[in-house]
């Protein structure tokens, strides 16, 4: 998939690219534990409650549910785009287009997520109202921060992708590996955020 050097015909990973992949996998495993910790906390608090959601919490408005479903679809689509962007070597403007599409999905996701919160704030559901509300805002908010971080990271990869695609001066081989490692790591992060959303979605809306 991801190339070692831009010019090599057969794709062999540069040692640095392998290092980075292993490092990134370790980071995601480690960071995944934070998500797991939050889900574990959710489970502990949720199963102690006699009724869930608690009786004094009004059911989530339909709008919010629609937003959540839309967001789920957006996340899956964005991952497909991203897979496409890096499906072949990163030497065409195509990858930039697909990365752009992924970012667009992410932006709409964030927008809908903020809409969700506004929708809930209006009738007066706040984080400090009770455990259910705290957990809802915690899990959705924590995940949304990751989406925002992912978007920033994509912006960080763009100059490299441009250079790899041959727009502007051609990078040195060393530099090219650097750019590819960066792009690939960020894409791993985004797939992780995608999976994290599926888990968050399942936990928050279906348990």
């Amino acid at each position: 998939m991801i190339a070692g050097t831009v010019d090599s015909k057969r794709v062999a990973l540069a040692p640095r690219a392998i290092d980075a992949r292993i490092g990134m996998m370790l980071f995601l495993a480690s960071w995944g534990m934070v998500f797991l910790t939050l889900f574990f906390s959710y489970a502990v608090l949720r199963f102690q409650a006699p009724v869930w959601p608690p009786a004094d919490v009004p059911p989530l408005p339909t709008n919010v549910k629609i937003f959540a479903w839309t967001n789920t679809i957006l996340m899956i689509v964005s991952s497909v785009f991203l897979k496409n962007a890096f499906g072949r070597r990163l030497n065409s403007p195509r990858s930039i287009v697909f990365v752009g599409a992924t970012m667009l999905c992410g932006l709409v996701f964030l927008f809908l997520q903020i809409e969700t919160w506004l929708e809930l704030w209006r009738p007066g559901m706040y984080m400090s109202d009770g455990t259910y509300q705290s957990l809802f805002y915690l899990l959705t908010g924590f995940h949304a921060l990751h989406v925002a971080a992912g978007l920033l990271l994509f912006i960080w990869t763009l100059p490299g992708l441009r250079a790899l695609a041959g727009i502007g001066p051609r990078p040195t081989a060393d530099r090219a590996i650097h750019y590819e490692v960066r792009a690939y790591s960020v894409s791993m992060f985004w797939h992780f955020v995608d999976v994290a959303w599926l888990a968050t979605f399942a936990v928050v809306y279906f348990t």
Partner: peptide, 20 residues
């Protein structure tokens, strides 16, 4: 990371008035 996760809940309890 488990401690970090737990500490996130604790700091929210402290500064945002949540109920974990």
């Amino acid at each position: 990371p488990v401690l970090t996760g737990g500490a996130i809940l604790m700091i929210l309890d402290r500064v945002a008035g949540t109920h974990f």
